[in-house]
Design a protein around this nucleic acid. Structure first.
Lengths: 228, 228
DNA sequence: CAGGATGCTAAACGCACGTTCAGCCGAACG
DNA sequence: CGTTCGGCTGAACGTGCGTTTAGCATCCTG
């Protein structure tokens, strides 16, 4: 039934090998149901026996590592090919629109939810994108400079990505196989407040900012008596 | 060993009953390790047998429901007693400082990560707080009005809460039993960018906002040819 | 003092999971 | 043609889980 042919010695990497089919099925299942899903379900999706999954990847952990590497590689490829978008929301929304990349978006979200090294790698990745986007914007004069650029990059990335995580809890997608409409709906809901906030801010005056700046400039020094 | 005395007919609700000890142990364990933790570990923490957990709560699901209700009740009590704080970050940071409430904060975070009805209830709760805070601020003239107040409330809540979730993935707390220092560190990291963004915005001019406003005012209408 | 709830436990059950293992099959190779 | 070897499978194993069940103390109640 399998009409695939691969070089014996070389790394297969063809997208029709059983190995790739298992990996892709795992990405879809992990993305749709989380990492608690059983190997038997993944094997059934890929049309193979559960034992073959372990034959190729050694263990469930190994399968997950392979998925992580593949997702990170595809993301790097997509990012290298397109202009860096504004925030994590934009990048993920665009990726989810492409049918081929859609399962990776759900996998990504699950990975950040689950924590661990993959979550750190993904967030560092988005922070790197944000860093260049902000730097370019400041250099071009379209973005205001910050008193702490790195802290702003971290906040923009975490709040942007985290907003999607919160949205996922508040109004979960019906179909994890196609997150496109769901993410588009999210962007439609938060687009206006983001634009308003980024253009006009939230406060009507500078008192809160000035108070904070003077607070952090002189040491609070009342930490020692907190337990009293 | 057990010196507690409870009314026979009435609802126990004393904090020294086995039921309360199990519930509190469950909140701590669920908060520290997630909802995948076993009943045997919770029972051991509470110093009882695993069967007693099911005797009191019927099932693991029932135990979780009892934890949910207790956490929601305590949060409501805390909120009723104190002035509404600015955002979810502030509320949670303040709660985590009180030793008695600290485990509830971790449980909350895990609940939102896990999704489900509890996640929705928590987020709706924080959105309600944000709603009154924003309305008061606008009425007092300290906050700018928005073209869509509800959307802004939703965005502020989701990005504020979600930022913590992202921070949890990027730099997980070492000790889930005391999230105070970890949340304080987060607030120190994002405090300045938040104040800057809320006061001065991010963009240097109104072009992005105006473009977005004119975009949403006239229909895009190119949705039909997306599949072509 | 009988009697029946109540709080609680030890032991076991059934199940689903990740994993192991012996062996089959078809193609490559001498 | 015989051999070998890697992809692949069916069946089983051990483990930990949530849950059930039978039974033991303890204490209120009539």
């Amino acid at each position: 039934m399998r009409s695939a042919q691969q070089r014996p010695g070389a790394a297969p990497a063809d997208d029709a090998t059983s190995r790739a089919r298992i990996r892709d099925a795992a990405i879809r299942r992990f993305g749709a149901e989380g990492f608690g899903v059983g190997l038997r379900a993944i094997a059934a999706d890929a049309g193979v026996s559960p034992a073959l999954v372990l034959h190729h990847f050694g263990s469930k952990e190994g399968l997950r590592r392979a998925c992580d590497e593949h997702v990170l590689a595809v993301i790097a490829e997509v990012k290298a090919r397109s202009v860096t978008a504004a925030g994590p929301e934009m990048v993920m929304t665009q990726m989810a629109e492409i049918e081929q990349y859609a399962p990776l978006v759900a996998y990504q979200l699950r990975s950040v939810l689950a924590g661990g090294e993959m979550a750190k790698a993904l967030l560092e990745d988005f922070m790197a994108s944000a860093r260049t986007w902000v730097a370019d914007g400041v250099a071009a004069g379209t973005l205001r400079p910050s008193r702490d650029e790195e802290a702003r990059v971290r906040y923009l990335t975490l709040s942007g990505y985290g907003g999607i995580l919160g949205w996922m809890a508040l109004d979960p997608p019906e179909d994890f196989g196609d997150l496109g409409p769901w993410l588009r709906r999210y962007m439609e809901g938060v687009g206006l407040p983001i634009m308003e906030l980024f253009t006009e801010g939230l406060f009507t005056d500078r008192r809160m900012l000035d108070a904070y700046l003077s607070y952090v400039s002189d040491p609070p020094a009342d930490e020692a008596q907190r337990s009293a």
